[in-house]
Design a protein around this nucleic acid. Sequence first.
DNA 1: ATGGGCACCTGGCTGC
DNA 2: TGCAGCCAGGTGCCCA
Length: 271
Amino acid sequence: MPELPEVETTRRGLAPHLTGRRIAGFAVHDRRLRWPIARALPGQLAGQRINAVERRAKYLLLRLDHGTLILHLGMSGSLRVLDAGTPRLKHDHYDLVLEGKRTLRFNDPRRFGCCLYTTAPPERHRLLRRLAPEPFDPAFGGAYLQRIARRRKVAIKLLIMNGQLVTGVGNIYASEALFHAQVRPRRAARSLSGAECAALARAIRKVLRASIRSGGTTLRDYTNAEGSPGYFRQRLYVYERAGQPCRRCHTPIRQFTQGQRSTYWCPTCQH
DNA sequence: ATGGGCACCTGGCTGC
DNA sequence: TGCAGCCAGGTGCCCA
């Protein structure tokens, strides 16, 4: 499910409800996630204040008094702020109960999400320490992309989906960004010119920013912290549009498989 | 170091 | 209706 825009939309929805609030308790309903929820967690979290809600790549970071909660939504996870008495649903995994009457509830049918706690600086955590710069960081841009692409022969689409090299771009926005940059997804990374790298870096930023403005993309089950869908789906140019006319030139959009994921592209607009 | 492929899951849809 | 098969927004890890 969620790529950077969906996680950022979730972060923005959660922040006003969580920031400055104290954690009254932590209830585990189903500890089976990508890594099982630690049994010690409720004892570690109770009484701590949430000082900030941040995002790094597709991870959400809840900064607490004595540590950081590292949350990931995986493919199908969602976080919602609810009244504490709201009946639970299938696949609810935990409640971070806030002081007052509200609770942060995590639901994740496929269980690819995670909920980890660290008392060390989170940027040094093994899941975060090798992540590439954020796309909106000044360190990311055409020159950066050209440097990492220069010697690699992987397909450019797989390169921009590699979190160690480019952050926050998942399967939807990889196809979309390549369309806007007019670059074919199968091209070897090292075959891109400086101008193409610059165009691709711009396209990645543009697509992510536009999607955040629309509240992200809801394909099937993504909802934000309030339970509302995102509206960027209407602005997708190629993703899940195989056989439909290109919005720019009317050529039918094509689909093929790359790294076990679907890729969409326009054979006329992309070179 | 790089690249390729698998694994981890459930649910929804399609077609027989 | 039932069931098999396929697909889905991520990413860590193992192997060559």
